[in-house]
Write a protein that binds this DNA or RNA. Structure first.
Lengths: 287, 287
DNA sequence: TCGGATTACGTGCACCGTAATGATC
DNA sequence: GATCATTACGGTGCACGTAATCCGA
């Protein structure tokens, strides 16, 4: 069998034309390369070069061999990366979600069931989440629309409903409820990592009026320091986050409430079954 | 990069289950294999086995790696054979023909133009000759039917006409010409290597009456020693083969005469151009 | 006690580099 | 005299084997 290092050297010679240049690139001496090429020819039982006593050039057979060499080298490289990648995936659960709240809820549930494994999380939109699920970039995803497809296992997770937080002297502060249209004329504080909610805000509010922070801490500072409106949700409030100096008003719109679904590949339903049931129980307990 | 010998060892371990068995098969000691597998894991940066202190079994990643290993090994093997095969083809012209006479004529013509190369010849039927031409098993073929296909270059070669050779006292000896039907009731001597003529004989004569020799010498002996009819052709007689003790009568049938064509792949027309023109000239000279 | 993996240690070969030689421009 | 391949020779790393150890049925 031909060893890889010989194929690497052959490929380098093919690429650089002379033994000298190839040897430089390979951090090797010409004699070593010269011998290697001879060895290669001996092992294959054919001559790969036309030797002109001061110049070697690949002959037809040599060119043919180089094609094989490149294919084998490519496969070898692919193996190195592929195996490492596969291994990493074996030890990590990648969770993708369309919104931060359900992700924050689900992550500890997963971690609890897969103590050995790393849990990585990511926000994205439903479409990318689904394709990522199918190409194994994600093992679990949280969506805000029930997905199609017999290859998927999907379970209802929880609901979330948006509220607006206003200073007490805000023109809308006395309202029982508001709509997105009511809010259109006001500036609103937002953090960028809110998943699909950002789309909703961009669509239903005036994009010019959105003051978006990349950093959660920055947002909290601004909430403290300013009197600008910002969003919250029933779920967040349940977790005890509220501000007695402000009023919190529900947004009465379909766009302001959503249902989350957890999904995985049907083929991995068994593996993640514990997560699904734990998630269901957690929701029931929380009610 | 992972060397081939490590992949071979991995594949053997995967195949035989234990290091011990695999080591035997590989003519290697267990320690060597043990180290190799560790080295492989180190180079890939992953663990491939579950080690149970007295038993190693491939884990998921290991199984995944084995798949790659097998693919790479297969490609490496394919390279060894493929390159040797390619080289052999570079140095040989394989000629296939449907009949021995034109093959015997053309072979020296080819050899003259490709002095460096080996010329191998083979008899077969038109169909196999054409498929062999297309899959590069033959570089040149001699057919008795003009082939279809834009990928082929084809040139008329020569005609051949069949005669029957009879003892002077044979019932048909006085005839100016005969048909296959006239010959049906008589035993006929044949040699097996006559290409497509054999099909004609089997179809037009009584197969039971054909006395087929595998060996040309055996045929010649029998021709001398017996008074059985046998075939010859205008072309063979031109070459001076005739027997004054016998009469030679033409067979007046379409099936008893044929036209030969030489063909090669269009893509190799340039390479074999000299053969085609030399063949044409030889035929003209011979008339 | 046997099957099977690992550790420890010494050895040889195969691949490498340096230096010299050859060949062509 | 450049450039580039090959031959010659001496060095070294690394893959190997042997022997010893460990562990579980």
């Amino acid at each position: 069998m031909i060893e890889i290092y010989l194929l690497e050297q052959l490929a380098a010679v093919a690429e650089h034309g002379t033994l000298l240049k190839a040897a430089e690139v390979l951090y090797l001496s010409q004699p070593a390369l010269s011998r290697s090429m001879k060895k290669l020819e001996a092992e294959l039982g054919v001559s790969l070069f036309d030797r002109d006593n001061s110049k070697i050039t690949l002959n037809k057979t040599g060119q043919y061999a180089v094609e094989y060499a490149r294919r084998i080298l490519e496969l070898d490289r692919e193996m190195c990366e592929g195996v490492a990648d596969f291994d990493r995936r074996q030890r990590t659960v990648s969770v993708g979600a369309c919104a931060p709240f359900p992700l924050g809820e689900l992550t500890p549930v997963i971690q609890e069931r897969f103590v050995e494994m790393a849990v990585t999380t990511e926000l994205s939109d439903d479409e990318k989440l689904l394709s990522g699920l199918r190409n194994r970039s994600y093992q679990l995803v949280i969506l805000h629309e029930k997905p199609e497809g017999r290859d998927l296992f999907c379970q209802h997770y929880l609901e979330e409903k948006l509220f607006i937080v206003l200073p007490k002297d805000h023109p809308l502060a006395k309202r029982k409820s508001v709509t997105f249209d009511d809010l259109r004329e006001y500036k609103v504080l937002l953090v960028s990592s809110i998943g699909f909610w950002m789309e909703i805000c961009r669509k239903r509010l005036d994009p010019e009026k959105l003051i978006v922070q990349n950093n959660m801490d920055a947002l909290l500072e601004l909430i403290e320091a300013s009197t600008l409106p910002h969003f919250t949700s029933d779920r967040i409030m349940e977790r005890g986050f509220s501000n007695p100096d402000r009023v919190t008003i529900p947004i009465e719109e379909d766009d302001a409430k959503t249902t989350y679904y957890i999904a995985c590949l049907n083929s991995e339903k068994k593996k993640y079954g514990a997560v699904f049931s734990a998630a269901r129980e957690a929701v029931l307990r929380g009610m």
